[in-house]
């Protein structure tokens, strides 16, 4: 990898992508990297398509990941994975949550959900990890911790020590929800 690692996190408003990126940012900072994050708040929070761009390494200029230069795509939803695929560089890695969330045009029957999303992704990339975030989160004790399951999977790819991740989670997540989040994170990691 070059001096900079680019991670694009995409999903649907309300899935908790922001918390995931916060923990990630905390970890890479603790590891001594420079970091820049780009995010858009606003309309997108009402169930729209959301994304966070995390860049860490040395001498980072742009806060956004240049199109086609993402090293890792962490997708919380299949359609969004497909939508943002072109941001990945050619030998990039994708971690995709095997969850389908229908957007309004699909709900109304005005558009069709690409049911072959996973196949398309696999046909284009060698390094595809499919994660069943919903089952893992449910097993961990709260369906809302899908974001931590996915972060756990990402942590395996990035390779920082588990303790650092847990430490940052302790600093970021309210004590009341900490245990279930750690459990979900570990489920994703293992």
């Amino acid at each position: 990898m070059s001096d900079i690692t680019n991670i694009l996190i995409v999903g649907v408003g309300g899935q908790g992508t922001i918390l995931a990126s916060k923990v990630l940012a905390g970890v890479v900072q603790k590891k001594g990297y420079e970091v820049k994050i780009a995010e858009i708040h606003g309309m997108s929070q009402r169930g729209g398509s959301v994304f966070t761009q995390v860049r860490y390494g040395k001498n980072i200029a742009s806060p956004t990941i240049p199109h086609g230069e993402a090293d890792i795509l962490l997708a919380f939803e299949k359609l969004e994975a497909l939508r943002w695929l072109s941001y990945l560089k050619q030998n990039g890695i994708i971690l995709v949550n095997d969850q389908r969330i229908d957007p309004m045009p699909v709900i109304m029957g005005a558009a069709e959900y690409p049911s072959d999303a996973m196949d398309v992704i696999k046909s284009k990339l060698q390094d595809v990890s499919v994660i069943d975030g919903v089952s893992e989160a449910t097993k961990a004790g709260n369906i809302k911790t899908v974001n931590m399951v996915l972060l756990g999977s990402l942590s395996k790819v990035l390779g920082f020590e588990e303790e650092v991740w847990i430490e940052v989670m302790k600093e970021t997540i309210p004590p009341k929800f900490l245990d279930v989040n750690i459990k979900a994170f570990q489920a994703g990691r293992n």
Binding site: V12, G13, M43, S44, Q45, R46, G47, G48, S49, P66, H67, G68, E69, L79, E80, L82, R83, L85, S86, Y87, L88, K89, Q90, G92, P103, M104, P105, V106, A111, E112, Y113, P114, V120, K124, L125
Partner: peptide
């Protein structure tokens, strides 16, 4: 020259949009 990326152009245009909605 643009970055060498994953080409999803043949599917991208046909993907359903995800507009924001009332909660």
């Amino acid at each position: 020259p643009p970055a060498k990326n994953i080409d999803n152009s043949e599917v991208a245009t046909a993907l359903p949009t995800r507009p924001p909605v009332l909660c």
